[in-house]
């Protein structure tokens, strides 16, 4: 369904001394139809940048993105626009993703109107149908986002996304601003909708437990690179990359994180993880490791495992 090859996105900063921040630095992965790929990593590792690049909400620096056989990066704006309904994104903060001055019903109707083809009555019907699908009450149609809770607003966002019948949804930390009991409601709803509408999902989160629950396969990201990708079992039972292990059992975490932060800009070669890696060698600081397939579909970016 989605094929990403060597995707790169650099941001440049600084006025006098231009520097490049390599937010995404050569990432490749595929997502099969009907599959959920979980993307985990700490803040600032480039997860969100990947999500946005996939929809071309930001323009990638280099790489290839194939969506259902179509090369997205070579599409013109107009063609892209026609394709957009098939790919939708759910953002982190539901309260910020809804127009505060629009009633819930109008917010959900908006994409339907833009898409065209439906008259007023049909739109109204479709809206109430969507409202029910995501577990809201009919009376919510006339409310404003500030009158609803965070969890309810995230349901509205889901309804809005489903309105255009997408095939592929990118969910960027959809529950990170919600309480645990509400988070459970939303995640279960997403799983249910995924089955009902036969969706393909890229689920971005920093919470490994949540990703475990939602995904078929997991990609672990660190500083702009995917360091390990594999099935949920492979990642949780048989993680090979030292960073994945740190994420899984943070209790055994690394003390040197702070020292690492102090020297953040000091190195530019070798493995992305070597300053924090408990097993690093001299070679790691010089030679960039290559992605190696160690089991079917289980890839690791570490020279130590081969």
């Amino acid at each position: 369904m989605i094929e990403v090859e060597n995707l790169k996105k650099y941001f440049s900063t600084g006025i006098l001394r231009k520097r490049h921040i390599k937010a995404v630095n050569g990432v490749s992965f595929q997502i099969e139809r009907g599959e959920t790929l979980g993307l985990v990593g700490e803040s600032g590792c480039g997860k969100t940048t990947i999500g946005r690049s996939l929809l071309r909400l930001i323009e990638p620096t280099a790489g290839k993105i194939i969506f259902d056989g179509i090369d997205l990066l070579h599409l013109k704006k107009k063609e892209l626009r026609r394709l957009r309904p098939r790919m939708q994104m759910i953002f982190q903060d539901p309260d910020a993703s809804l127009n505060p001055r629009m009633k819930i019903g109008d917010s959900i109707a908006e994409p339907l109107k833009l898409q065209g083809g439906l008259n007023k009555v049909e739109i109204k019907e479709k809206v109430s149908e969507l409202i029910e699908t995501v577990g809201l009450n009919p009376e919510h149609v006339n409310r404003y986002p500030y009158q609803l809770s965070g969890g309810q607003n995230q349901r509205v966002v889901l309804a809005r996304v489903l309105a255009v019948n997408p095939d592929f949804i990118i969910a960027d930390e959809p529950t990170s601003s919600l309480d645990v009991s509400v988070q459970a409601q939303i995640l279960n709803l997403m799983n249910h909708l995924k089955r009902e509408f036969d969706l393909t999902l890229l689920f971005i989160s920093h919470d490994l437990e949540v990703v475990r629950h939602m995904s078929d396969r997991i990609a672990v990201m660190y500083r702009g690179k995917i360091v390990e990708i594999g099935s949920v079992n492979e990642i949780f039972e048989d993680a090979k990359h030292p960073y994945t292990n740190t994420l899984i059992s943070p209790a055994s975490s690394l003390e040197d994180q702070l020292i690492f932060e102090d020297m953040k800009d000091a190195w530019d070669s070798g493995c992305v993880f070597y300053p924090r890696c408990p097993f690093n060698t001299v070679i790691c600081s010089k030679k960039e490791p290559e992605m190696v397939e160690i089991g079917k579909g289980h890839w690791v970016l570490c020279d130590r495992v081969t």
């Binding site: 809770s149 969890g151 309810q152 309480d179 645990v180 009991s181 509400v182 988070q183 459970a184 409601q185 995640l187 279960n188 919470d207 437990e209 949540v210 475990r212 629950h213």
Partner: peptide, 19 residues
């Protein structure tokens, strides 16, 4: 009990309704 059960590693069973 509901709070514990709604944690992702405890099965993600939500408490119905809202606070």
């Amino acid at each position: 009990q509901g709070f514990l059960n709604s944690l992702p590693n405890m099965g993600l069973k939500p408490i119905r309704g809202m606070s």
